[in-house]
Nucleic acid binder design. Structure first.
Length: 263
DNA sequence: AAAGCTGACAACCGCCACAGT
DNA sequence: CACTGTGGCGGTTGTCAGCTT
C-alpha cells in the first residue's frame, strides 16, 4: 500500500521482447555484467522495467540455458525436489543447471501436475488422492503445500508413494534408490561445474574455472573475446541469433554508446 | 478449410526479504 | 528501530502454434 511501482509505468513498454531489445540487453550485460537492474533499462537504452530486463535475461537470454522440454530424468528430479521443497521453484531450479524456475514451474503446471493426477497422486501433497478429493479445492491445496514446506523431514513416506508409482516408467535413475544406498544425491553429483557457473552468474560465488571457449565473465567485457565477431559467434552457439545481430553493428545510438563508454 | 481447443511458454503482477540509510 | 529501495520469488495471465473436429 502506497508502495511505489518498481518502475514508472508511463513510457515503459510491455509485452514480448523484440530482437532489437534483446540485442541491447545482451550487449549491455556483456559489457557491464549484471548490475543494478533498475538502472539497466536506462543505461541500455531500453524502455523496459528493470524487473522485466532481469526476467528476460534470467529466463531467456542467459547463455547457459538449456532449451526444450525436460527429459524424463529431469522430470523425475523435479518431482523428487518438489516433494521436498514444495513450490519453491527457484530452489528446485538451482539444483538443475540450465533450467530456470519459470521453465520448471511451467513444466510442472502443464505436464507433471496432470501426469501425477492421472496416476492418482495429489501433486500438492505427493500422496495418493482420496476418493473425494478428485477435484481438490484450491484452499486445501494451498494448505497442504504449506504443510509440506513446513515438514520437510516428514515427507519421506509421501515421496515414496510418488516414486513407487513413477518407477513403472522411470529408468534406473530414481533418486530414491540413490539415497537409499547412501551415495551422493543425483543433484549434487550431476553438473557440478554447471552449478558453479550458475552460482557465479547469479552472483552467489566467485568465478568458477571452466571452458573459456564457451562463456566468458561479463566483467571482462568485450575484452574476453578476440573480436566482436567472436562474441557474436559465441552468442550464436547459445541462442538463435545471427552473428550480424551483435557487435559494432548493433543498433546503439550515440547517446547509448556514450553511456556505455563512460562506464 | 475454418473454427475451436489445447499445450507450451513468455511475461507480468504483487508480495516478501533483506540491505542500506 | 523504522523506513526505503531493490532484487527475487511464486502465482497467474496472455499469446501463439499445433492439433482436432
Amino acid at each position: 500500500m502506497g508502495r511505489q511501482p518498481c518502475c514508472d509505468k508511463l513510457g515503459v513498454k510491455k509485452g514480448p521482447w523484440t530482437v532489437e531489445e534483446d540485442k541491447k540487453l545482451i550487449n549491455f550485460i556483456l559489457v557491464n555484467g549484471q548490475c543494478c537492474w533498475r538502472a539497466v533499462p536506462k543505461l541500455a537504452g531500453l524502455r523496459r522495467c528493470g524487473k522485466s530486463c532481469r526476467l528476460r535475461w534470467t529466463n531467456y537470454l542467459r547463455p547457459d540455458l538449456k532449451r526444450g522440454l525436460l527429459n524424463e530424468s529431469e522430470e523425475q528430479l523435479v518431482i523428487d525436489l518438489h516433494a521436498r521443497l514444495g513450490n519453491r521453484w527457484s530452489k528446485i531450479a538451482a539444483s538443475m543447471p540450465g533450467r530456470t524456475d519459470n521453465e520448471i514451474k511451467n513444466h510442472w503446471n502443464t505436464h507433471i501436475k496432470k501426469k501425477l493426477l492421472k496416476m492418482g497422486i495429489d501433486p500438492a501433497t505427493h500422496k495418493p488422492l482420496q476418493k473425494d478429493t478428485d477435484a481438490p479445492n484450491p484452499s486445501s491445496q494451498k494448505h497442504s503445500t504449506q504443510s509440506s514446506n513446513d515438514n520437510h523431514g516428514s515427507t519421506d513416506s509421501s515421496i515414496g508413494s510418488v516414486e513407487e508409482n513413477l518407477n513403472c516408467c522411470a529408468p534406473s535413475e530414481s533418486s530414491q534408490n540413490i539415497e537409499e544406498n547412501g551415495t551422493k544425491p543425483l543433484l549434487q553429483s550431476l553438473h557440478e561445474d554447471d552449478n558453479k557457473l550458475l552460482s557465479y552468474l547469479l552472483g552467489e560465488s566467485e568465478p568458477p574455472v571452466f571452458d573459456v571457449s564457451t562463456w566468458e565473465l561479463p566483467n571482462n567485457g568485450v575484452n574476453s573475446f578476440a573480436s566482436w565477431d567472436d562474441c557474436g559467434t559465441w552468442l550464436l552457439d547459445c541462442q538463435d541469433f545471427g552473428v550480424h545481430d551483435f557487435g559494432p553493428d548493433a543498433n546503439f545510438d550515440d547517446v547509448e554508446i556514450n553511456i556505455l563508454n563512460t562506464n
